[in-house]
Nucleic acid binder design. Structure first.
Lengths: 229, 229
DNA sequence: AAGTGGTCTAGACCACGCG
DNA sequence: GCGTGGTCTAGACCACTTA
């Protein structure tokens, strides 16, 4: 009898795999299981919570623990820091500021940031390189009212991506992934044909309800984001 | 004094946000914090583990808990069940089997599945619709030696995606996301222009080391996968 | 060698939500 | 109401890793 929470998770997982407990079924209560496994209830709790996090179980007070009817897999991705990702592949990371200006946010941007009034934002475009190859095109809007020390940063040297991730915290964020066809500008900057399929990552963050920044990262063909299940 | 682990997580999170503890810093030990917060060490442990899971802290025995030097955000995505996703938008889900055959796996597929010998696999192509609009193109290879009851399934009625997710468990899996330019076949099947950018999702699973299935899902332009941070 | 996080225990109280 | 999971406690032992 393995009384570790990992051992119990493994055994419960096996019963789910083997169909001893089927989707929709109510499984025994924590008390019953802690009795069966001859361990403390807290240990069973740890194991079942872990499985519930993965989406395999659904737990409700009083109602008990059920095997998820439709096991919607959940996958955890690490969102890359561009510099770290490039250097991890053994390439040299390089960064080039393309554009920096203060502008009123266009409508789609203020919508994305949930801005009420069309505030004056800092707009930055930059290219990230892996060796001499363009690796990622960054298009970012920053709310200067929320980000301290913004005017002190030399964005021709420090990537906005890195500065913000390292220094500016947030309390909420949204992330979405998609694909987008390259336009003429993308093609030229990323040095690829104009019809290429780009991988697109959008991220927006807020600090206590105030918009901080929103960014679109575009990656040339071949880029993938991977994880294990 | 809030002695809940959520309250403690919030307070520690605040100290990270406010820079009281900076990237790379060693923060007080669990014992010290449980003393400060006047609670049990287990409660502090729960809070710190939660922050470590999110990538904000790095914990090592004896070395203590450090603020992550480069806070690599981790994001959890729910991997959609196609039917559920379509129906959640209020559309009618429809499924069309395009092709079903037994073939030796081509090299790229056996590599993806980590097959040693070129086994005979079941190859399936199918289209998933949202209303009358093509929603997703599925290209799947199944290992019949591992999947029970495969010959009993009528894949003209039941989507392989759904059958496998509901009935066939796995112990390991890989998932990768990317973008791909549509070719002539994709364009015709998905009813889109030939240069469109497709969102590509690859998933492969194994059961106790044996390859179960590998699938490529292609989504037409406009599809996004989203989550909150 | 010693300090730190990882985990387990036995017990307790509570909040939720089904009947 | 009352059974269930959610959480907290005080204490203990252990595993890992650094000094």
């Amino acid at each position: 009898m393995s009384q570790t929470w990992l051992g119990i998770r493994e055994e419960v997982h096996r019963r789910l795999r083997d169909g001893e407990w089927k989707p929709g079924d109510l499984i025994p209560s924590e008390a019953a299981l802690s009795d069966e496994f001859n361990c403390a209830r807290a240990t069973v709790n740890r194991a079942l919570q872990s499985l519930a996090e993965q989406g395999l179980l659904e737990r409700k007070r009083k109602a008990g623990t059920r095997v998820a009817a439709t096991p919607v897999p959940k996958a955890m991705f690490q969102i890359p820091l561009l510099r770290a990702e490039v250097e991890a592949r053994g390439s040299t990371y390089r960064y080039l500021l393309l554009k920096k200006s203060r502008r009123k946010a266009p409508r789609n941007i203020s919508a994305r940031m949930k801005l009420e009034s069309a505030a004056n934002l800092l707009h930055i475009k930059a290219l990230h390189f892996s060796g001499d190859t363009p690796y990622c095109l960054e298009d970012r809007w920053i709310n200067p009212d929320v980000v301290d020390g913004l005017s002190d940063v030399d964005f021709s040297q420090t990537s906005a991506n890195e500065f913000l991730l390292r220094n500016i915290p947030y309390t909420q964020g949204e992330l979405s992934l998609g694909a987008r066809e390259a336009n003429a500008e993308h093609a030229e900057l990323l040095d690829i044909p104009e019809t290429s399929a780009l991988f697109e990552m959008n991220r927006s963050t807020w600090l206590d309800g105030l918009p901080v920044t929103t960014v679109t990262l575009l990656f040339p063909p071949g880029y993938t984001l991977s994880t294990t299940l």
